[in-house]
Simulated scan of single mutants.
Amino acid sequence: MPQLLRVGEVDIVPLLEWQGTFITRGTLLPSSDAAEWSDNASWLDPTFWSAQTDGVPLHSRSYVIRSDGQLILVDTGIGNGKNRPQVPPFNGLDTDYLSRLCDEIGDVEAVDVVINTHIHQDHVGWNTRLVDGQWRPTFPRATYLLPGADYEEWNRSRGSDAGADEVFLDSVLPVVDTGQASFYTGERVVDQNITIVAAPGHSPGSSVVMIVSAGESAVITGDIVHTPMQLAHPEQHLVFDADPVRAVSSRRTVLAAVADAGSIMLPAHFGRAGGLWLTRDGSGFSIAEWVPLTAE
Protein backbone atom coordinates (compact mmCIF):
# COMPACT_ATOMS: atom_id res chain seq x y z
CA MET A 1 0.00 0.00 0.00
CA PRO A 2 1.39 3.46 -0.89
CA GLN A 3 2.75 5.49 1.97
CA LEU A 4 1.69 9.07 2.49
CA LEU A 5 3.31 12.12 4.01
CA ARG A 6 1.14 15.17 4.62
CA VAL A 7 2.77 18.62 4.79
CA GLY A 8 0.13 21.15 5.67
CA GLU A 9 -2.45 20.78 2.92
CA VAL A 10 -0.07 19.02 0.53
CA ASP A 11 0.00 15.22 0.14
CA ILE A 12 3.29 13.58 -0.85
CA VAL A 13 3.69 9.93 -1.84
CA PRO A 14 7.19 8.49 -2.41
CA LEU A 15 7.37 5.95 -5.24
CA LEU A 16 10.31 3.55 -5.34
CA GLU A 17 11.41 2.51 -8.81
CA TRP A 18 14.63 0.57 -8.18
CA GLN A 19 16.95 -0.42 -5.35
CA GLY A 20 20.34 -2.05 -5.42
CA THR A 21 24.08 -1.58 -5.18
CA PHE A 22 26.25 -0.65 -8.13
CA ILE A 23 28.96 1.50 -6.53
CA THR A 24 31.29 1.39 -3.53
CA ARG A 25 31.76 4.01 -0.85
CA GLY A 26 35.28 4.78 -2.05
CA THR A 27 34.11 5.38 -5.60
CA LEU A 28 30.96 7.31 -4.72
CA LEU A 29 32.72 9.59 -2.21
CA PRO A 30 36.42 9.66 -3.11
CA SER A 31 37.40 11.73 -0.07
CA SER A 32 35.43 9.71 2.50
CA ASP A 33 37.20 8.08 5.43
CA ALA A 34 36.77 4.29 5.44
CA ALA A 35 37.55 4.07 9.16
CA GLU A 36 34.76 6.50 10.03
CA TRP A 37 32.24 4.41 8.11
CA SER A 38 33.42 1.34 10.02
CA ASP A 39 33.01 3.25 13.27
CA ASN A 40 29.39 3.98 12.29
CA ALA A 41 28.60 0.49 11.01
CA SER A 42 26.05 -0.06 13.79
CA TRP A 43 23.54 2.16 11.98
CA LEU A 44 24.96 2.26 8.45
CA ASP A 45 25.23 -1.49 7.82
CA PRO A 46 23.36 -2.87 5.91
CA THR A 47 20.79 -0.18 5.02
CA PHE A 48 23.18 2.53 3.89
CA TRP A 49 26.49 0.68 3.50
CA SER A 50 27.83 -2.85 3.46
CA ALA A 51 30.77 -3.33 5.80
CA GLN A 52 31.58 -6.56 3.96
CA THR A 53 31.66 -5.25 0.36
CA ASP A 54 32.01 -1.47 0.85
CA GLY A 55 28.97 -1.14 -1.42
CA VAL A 56 26.42 1.66 -0.97
CA PRO A 57 22.79 0.53 -1.43
CA LEU A 58 20.83 3.19 -3.27
CA HIS A 59 17.22 3.80 -4.24
CA SER A 60 15.75 5.48 -7.29
CA ARG A 61 12.69 7.35 -6.05
CA SER A 62 10.05 9.73 -7.39
CA TYR A 63 7.61 11.84 -5.42
CA VAL A 64 3.93 12.23 -6.29
CA ILE A 65 2.53 15.49 -4.94
CA ARG A 66 -1.05 16.68 -4.73
CA SER A 67 -1.06 20.42 -4.22
CA ASP A 68 -3.43 23.28 -5.00
CA GLY A 69 -5.57 21.11 -7.29
CA GLN A 70 -2.59 19.84 -9.29
CA LEU A 71 -0.89 16.46 -9.53
CA ILE A 72 2.88 16.92 -9.70
CA LEU A 73 5.55 14.27 -10.25
CA VAL A 74 9.06 15.13 -9.03
CA ASP A 75 11.81 13.23 -10.87
CA THR A 76 10.97 10.30 -13.09
CA GLY A 77 13.69 7.79 -12.32
CA ILE A 78 15.53 5.51 -14.71
CA GLY A 79 12.78 4.36 -17.06
CA ASN A 80 12.17 1.05 -18.82
CA GLY A 81 14.05 -0.16 -21.85
CA LYS A 82 16.64 2.62 -21.85
CA ASN A 83 20.12 1.88 -23.23
CA ARG A 84 22.36 2.60 -20.24
CA PRO A 85 25.49 0.42 -20.55
CA GLN A 86 27.48 2.79 -18.33
CA VAL A 87 25.43 1.59 -15.33
CA PRO A 88 24.61 -2.08 -16.01
CA PRO A 89 21.74 -2.34 -13.45
CA PHE A 90 19.97 0.51 -15.28
CA ASN A 91 20.52 -0.96 -18.74
CA GLY A 92 17.29 -2.22 -20.28
CA LEU A 93 15.53 -1.92 -16.94
CA ASP A 94 12.07 -3.48 -16.78
CA THR A 95 10.02 -2.66 -13.67
CA ASP A 96 6.36 -2.20 -12.79
CA TYR A 97 6.96 1.45 -11.86
CA LEU A 98 4.43 2.86 -14.33
CA SER A 99 1.65 0.47 -13.34
CA ARG A 100 2.23 1.27 -9.66
CA LEU A 101 2.23 4.98 -10.44
CA CYS A 102 -1.07 4.57 -12.28
CA ASP A 103 -2.48 2.64 -9.33
CA GLU A 104 -1.75 5.76 -7.31
CA ILE A 105 -2.85 8.48 -9.74
CA GLY A 106 -5.35 6.71 -11.98
CA ASP A 107 -3.84 7.37 -15.39
CA VAL A 108 -0.81 9.02 -16.99
CA GLU A 109 -3.08 11.83 -18.18
CA ALA A 110 -3.71 12.81 -14.56
CA VAL A 111 -0.21 14.33 -14.24
CA ASP A 112 -0.28 18.10 -14.62
CA VAL A 113 3.38 18.91 -13.98
CA VAL A 114 6.63 16.94 -14.10
CA ILE A 115 9.61 18.48 -12.32
CA ASN A 116 13.11 17.26 -13.16
CA THR A 117 15.45 18.46 -10.40
CA HIS A 118 18.31 17.95 -12.85
CA ILE A 119 19.02 16.15 -16.11
CA HIS A 120 20.74 12.92 -15.17
CA GLN A 121 19.80 9.45 -16.38
CA ASP A 122 18.16 8.36 -13.11
CA HIS A 123 15.96 11.46 -12.80
CA VAL A 124 14.49 11.83 -16.31
CA GLY A 125 13.97 8.26 -17.51
CA TRP A 126 10.20 8.04 -17.26
CA ASN A 127 9.82 11.40 -18.98
CA THR A 128 9.28 9.15 -21.99
CA ARG A 129 8.27 5.61 -22.90
CA LEU A 130 8.63 3.59 -26.06
CA VAL A 131 5.52 3.71 -28.28
CA ASP A 132 5.62 2.10 -31.74
CA GLY A 133 9.39 2.25 -31.73
CA GLN A 134 9.55 5.94 -30.79
CA TRP A 135 10.24 7.64 -27.46
CA ARG A 136 7.11 9.59 -26.60
CA PRO A 137 6.25 11.70 -23.53
CA THR A 138 4.84 9.39 -20.86
CA PHE A 139 2.54 12.11 -19.52
CA PRO A 140 0.73 13.62 -22.51
CA ARG A 141 -0.98 16.47 -20.62
CA ALA A 142 1.92 17.47 -18.40
CA THR A 143 4.15 20.48 -18.52
CA TYR A 144 7.72 19.27 -18.00
CA LEU A 145 9.78 21.72 -15.94
CA LEU A 146 13.44 21.26 -16.90
CA PRO A 147 16.50 23.12 -15.55
CA GLY A 148 17.59 25.45 -18.32
CA ALA A 149 21.27 25.37 -17.36
CA ASP A 150 21.37 21.58 -17.65
CA TYR A 151 19.56 21.62 -20.97
CA GLU A 152 21.95 24.20 -22.38
CA GLU A 153 25.00 22.27 -21.16
CA TRP A 154 23.83 18.93 -22.49
CA ASN A 155 22.77 20.45 -25.80
CA ARG A 156 26.07 22.32 -26.16
CA SER A 157 28.18 19.23 -25.42
CA ARG A 158 26.33 16.84 -27.69
CA GLY A 159 28.73 14.52 -29.48
CA SER A 160 31.32 14.45 -26.69
CA ASP A 161 29.71 11.72 -24.56
CA ALA A 162 27.70 8.95 -26.20
CA GLY A 163 25.99 7.97 -22.95
CA ALA A 164 24.90 11.50 -22.18
CA ASP A 165 23.73 11.97 -25.75
CA GLU A 166 21.51 8.90 -25.48
CA VAL A 167 19.83 10.20 -22.30
CA PHE A 168 19.29 13.56 -23.96
CA LEU A 169 17.85 12.02 -27.11
CA ASP A 170 15.54 9.46 -25.53
CA SER A 171 14.38 11.24 -22.36
CA VAL A 172 14.68 15.00 -22.87
CA LEU A 173 14.31 16.02 -26.51
CA PRO A 174 11.00 14.17 -27.03
CA VAL A 175 9.25 16.40 -24.45
CA VAL A 176 10.88 19.47 -25.97
CA ASP A 177 9.81 18.49 -29.46
CA THR A 178 6.16 18.18 -28.41
CA GLY A 179 6.23 21.66 -26.86
CA GLN A 180 5.65 20.31 -23.36
CA ALA A 181 8.93 21.55 -21.88
CA SER A 182 9.28 24.74 -19.86
CA PHE A 183 12.76 25.74 -18.73
CA TYR A 184 13.46 27.21 -15.32
CA THR A 185 16.46 29.05 -13.93
CA GLY A 186 17.11 30.25 -10.40
CA GLU A 187 13.79 30.11 -8.57
CA ARG A 188 10.53 28.94 -10.13
CA VAL A 189 7.16 29.12 -8.38
CA VAL A 190 5.05 26.10 -9.33
CA ASP A 191 2.00 26.93 -7.21
CA GLN A 192 1.21 28.59 -3.89
CA ASN A 193 2.85 25.72 -1.98
CA ILE A 194 5.74 24.63 -4.19
CA THR A 195 8.88 26.41 -5.37
CA ILE A 196 11.90 25.09 -7.26
CA VAL A 197 15.15 26.55 -5.91
CA ALA A 198 18.56 26.37 -7.58
CA ALA A 199 21.27 24.29 -5.87
CA PRO A 200 23.95 24.06 -8.58
CA GLY A 201 27.09 21.99 -8.50
CA HIS A 202 25.98 18.40 -8.91
CA SER A 203 24.94 19.64 -12.33
CA PRO A 204 24.78 23.23 -13.63
CA GLY A 205 21.02 23.39 -13.09
CA SER A 206 20.67 21.08 -10.10
CA SER A 207 17.75 22.18 -7.92
CA VAL A 208 15.63 21.27 -4.92
CA VAL A 209 11.86 21.42 -4.50
CA MET A 210 10.52 23.31 -1.49
CA ILE A 211 7.03 22.61 -0.16
CA VAL A 212 5.55 25.10 2.33
CA SER A 213 1.94 24.80 3.45
CA ALA A 214 -0.04 25.75 6.56
CA GLY A 215 3.06 26.38 8.64
CA GLU A 216 4.79 23.11 7.70
CA SER A 217 7.55 22.51 5.18
CA ALA A 218 9.54 19.86 3.36
CA VAL A 219 12.36 19.85 0.81
CA ILE A 220 12.87 17.25 -1.92
CA THR A 221 16.64 17.40 -2.16
CA GLY A 222 17.35 15.74 -5.51
CA ASP A 223 21.01 14.79 -5.73
CA ILE A 224 22.62 17.18 -3.29
CA VAL A 225 23.21 14.11 -1.08
CA HIS A 226 23.34 10.38 -1.79
CA THR A 227 24.08 8.96 1.66
CA PRO A 228 23.44 10.03 5.27
CA MET A 229 27.20 10.23 5.84
CA GLN A 230 27.22 13.35 3.67
CA LEU A 231 25.01 14.99 6.26
CA ALA A 232 27.82 14.77 8.79
CA HIS A 233 30.38 15.70 6.13
CA PRO A 234 28.87 18.07 3.55
CA GLU A 235 32.38 18.74 2.26
CA GLN A 236 32.61 15.24 0.81
CA HIS A 237 31.75 15.58 -2.84
CA LEU A 238 30.19 12.95 -5.04
CA VAL A 239 32.11 11.41 -7.90
CA PHE A 240 29.18 12.55 -10.07
CA ASP A 241 29.36 16.24 -9.07
CA ALA A 242 30.10 18.36 -12.13
CA ASP A 243 31.48 21.21 -9.99
CA PRO A 244 32.51 19.85 -6.57
CA VAL A 245 33.16 23.28 -5.04
CA ARG A 246 29.72 24.60 -5.96
CA ALA A 247 28.12 21.28 -4.98
CA VAL A 248 29.60 21.50 -1.48
CA SER A 249 28.41 25.09 -1.14
CA SER A 250 24.89 24.21 -2.29
CA ARG A 251 24.79 21.17 -0.02
CA ARG A 252 25.73 23.23 3.03
CA THR A 253 23.21 25.95 2.15
CA VAL A 254 20.31 23.55 1.61
CA LEU A 255 21.02 21.37 4.64
CA ALA A 256 21.35 24.43 6.88
CA ALA A 257 18.03 25.79 5.59
CA VAL A 258 16.33 22.43 6.16
CA ALA A 259 17.70 22.08 9.69
CA ASP A 260 17.06 25.67 10.76
CA ALA A 261 13.50 25.74 9.43
CA GLY A 262 12.59 22.36 10.89
CA SER A 263 11.68 21.17 7.40
CA ILE A 264 11.35 17.53 6.46
CA MET A 265 14.11 16.36 4.14
CA LEU A 266 12.99 14.03 1.36
CA PRO A 267 16.03 12.40 -0.32
CA ALA A 268 16.06 10.74 -3.72
CA HIS A 269 18.53 7.94 -3.13
CA PHE A 270 18.85 7.00 0.54
CA GLY A 271 18.48 3.27 1.07
CA ARG A 272 15.48 3.80 3.34
CA ALA A 273 12.07 5.25 2.54
CA GLY A 274 10.69 8.24 4.36
CA GLY A 275 11.67 11.73 5.31
CA LEU A 276 13.86 12.94 8.12
CA TRP A 277 14.42 15.90 10.36
CA LEU A 278 17.94 17.29 10.58
CA THR A 279 19.79 18.99 13.39
CA ARG A 280 23.08 20.86 13.30
CA ASP A 281 25.96 18.78 14.61
CA GLY A 282 29.33 20.55 14.76
CA SER A 283 30.32 21.57 11.24
CA GLY A 284 27.76 19.20 9.77
CA PHE A 285 24.34 17.77 10.44
CA SER A 286 22.81 14.62 11.84
CA ILE A 287 19.46 12.86 11.66
CA ALA A 288 17.30 13.99 14.56
CA GLU A 289 14.43 11.66 13.71
CA TRP A 290 12.93 9.76 10.81
CA VAL A 291 9.47 10.95 9.78
CA PRO A 292 6.94 8.13 9.86
CA LEU A 293 4.90 7.50 6.74
CA THR A 294 1.26 6.55 7.07
CA ALA A 295 -0.86 4.33 4.86
CA GLU A 296 -3.21 6.20 2.56
Rank of each mutant, 00 (worst) to 15 (best):
Q3A: 12
V7F: 07
G8P: 01
E9H: 12
E9C: 09
I12R: 08
V13N: 05
L16K: 13
L16E: 11
E17L: 02
W18A: 08
W18C: 04
Q19P: 01
T24M: 05
P30V: 03
P30W: 01
P30L: 04
D33W: 10
A34P: 06
A35W: 09
N40I: 00
L44C: 05
D45E: 05
D45Y: 03
W49I: 10
Q52D: 15
T53I: 05
D54W: 07
V56S: 04
H59D: 13
R61Q: 14
V64D: 06
D68R: 11
G69R: 09
G69I: 12
L71C: 14
T76G: 03
T76H: 01
N80F: 09
K82C: 08
N83P: 04
G92R: 11
G92Q: 10
T95E: 07
D96F: 09
Y97C: 09
Y97F: 15
S99I: 12
R100K: 14
L101T: 10
C102M: 14
C102T: 15
E104Y: 12
V108D: 04
E109Q: 14
E109H: 12
D112C: 03
N116C: 14
T117W: 00
H120Y: 11
Q121D: 13
V124I: 14
W126N: 15
L130A: 11
L130P: 06
R136H: 11
A142Q: 03
T143M: 13
L145Y: 03
P147H: 04
P147A: 09
A149I: 03
D150W: 02
Y151H: 15
N155W: 07
N155R: 15
R156S: 14
R156I: 02
R158E: 11
G159V: 05
G159P: 06
A162C: 06
G163W: 06
A164G: 15
V167Y: 12
F168L: 15
P174V: 06
V176G: 08
T178R: 07
G179E: 02
Y184H: 15
R188I: 00
V189C: 02
V190L: 10
D191A: 05
N193F: 08
T195F: 00
A198C: 02
G201W: 00
H202Q: 05
P204Y: 00
V212P: 00
V212N: 12
V212K: 13
S213F: 13
A218Y: 04
I224A: 02
V225P: 01
H226F: 14
P228I: 14
M229G: 06
Q230T: 00
H233N: 11
H237K: 07
H237A: 15
A242L: 12
P244H: 08
A247W: 00
A247I: 03
V248E: 14
S250F: 00
V258T: 08
A259K: 09
A259N: 07
D260C: 02
G262C: 09
S263K: 06
I264L: 10
I264R: 10
M265D: 01
P267F: 00
P267Q: 03
R272S: 08
G282L: 02
E289F: 03
P292M: 11
T294Y: 10
